[in-house]
């Protein structure tokens, strides 16, 4: 790692202030960022740790909306249970130790194309709350490791409307155990939403054809004959674009079945 200053503010206001500095970068759970720093692929002058800020942590279930503080770790979401599909997802990110450190805000801010949380946020029609504004998930994910966040803007909370039915199924890349393809489906006030992670070169996306088919018949059979094009899917040593495209269909069916 290159040398940097590490600041540990205890209030959001202090964190925002610290992030105003030149080459300052937020540090949440660090489960992705620290390995990146070890490879010297990032060179921040200051890291501002968000995990010491109590107001960024915690989970509230009010009026059918689950609000999760940005610095809440995966293990806490897994334990919560008020949005079972989301807790199930959180309980299978990385491994137990990673789940004790990694946070929802960190995951969504990083927007790794193989991460789990982006699928949950997009399929749930979640709202990303930052220190400045609220961003609908549909407008938040803008590409590979790209989001609508501005420099110095941090995720303070994520609001999930709890759907009537939902499930997440992840097909793991054998080495990293990230999603080779992960599909989150929901059925609720927003209709049916299907979000796919791991597969596309553009990052997480909604599979609208599947959503339409499932809107009239929320059952795996509704997806018969539907497929996503291999064009634009990720191809690497763990799977060709064709394989990933195929998996999107299979895993979506399984997610629908799991959602019941």
């Amino acid at each position: 790692m290159y040398a940097f200053e590490l600041e540990r503010p205890t209030t959001l206001a202090d964190a925002i202030k610290a992030l105003g500095g030149e080459e300052a970068q937020p540090l949440s759970g660090g489960q992705t960022l620290i390995p990146t720093l070890k490879q010297r692929l990032a060179m921040p002058s200051t890291l501002v740790s968000l995990t010491g800020i109590d107001e960024l942590k915690g989970i509230k279930n009010e009026g059918g909306t689950l609000t999760i503080g940005g610095a809440t770790c995966h293990a806490d979401v897994a334990k919560d249970g008020s949005y079972p599909a989301l807790s199930d997802l959180a309980g299978h990110i990385g491994d137990p130790h990673v789940r004790n450190r990694g946070t929802i805000g960190g995951s969504l801010a990083n927007n790794d194309p193989s991460a789990c949380y982006p699928a949950a946020a997009l399929a749930s029609g979640a709202t990303i709350v930052t220190n400045n504004r609220e961003i609908a998930a549909d407008n938040y994910f803008t590409g590979l490791f790209e989001t609508a966040l501005d420099e110095g803007e941090i995720i303070t909370a994520v609001k999930f409307p709890i759907p009537e039915k939902a499930a997440y199924v992840k097909f793991e890349q054998p080495a990293s155990r990230f999603a080779l393809v992960g599909v989150f489906v929901t059925k609720g006030a927003n209709g049916v939403r299907v979000a796919v992670t791991g597969a596309s070169e553009g990052g997480v996306f909604r599979w609208t054809e599947a959503e339409e088919a499932l809107s009239s018949n929320f059952a795996p059979s509704a997806l018969e004959g539907l497929s996503v094009p291999a064009d634009g899917m990720i191809g690497d040593l763990h799977g060709t674009p064709e394989y990933r495209a195929h998996l999107v269909g299979v895993i979506t069916k399984r997610a629908v079945m799991k959602a019941g």
């Binding site: 054998p174 080495a175 990293s176 690497d236 040593l237 763990h238």
Partner: peptide
């Protein structure tokens, strides 16, 4: 796995299973 230029594609446990 190496690519045809000799770059190691499996350089960590992220890709070497």
């Amino acid at each position: 796995v190496y690519d045809e230029d000799g770059q190691l594609l499996t350089g960590s446990y992220m890709d070497y299973a």
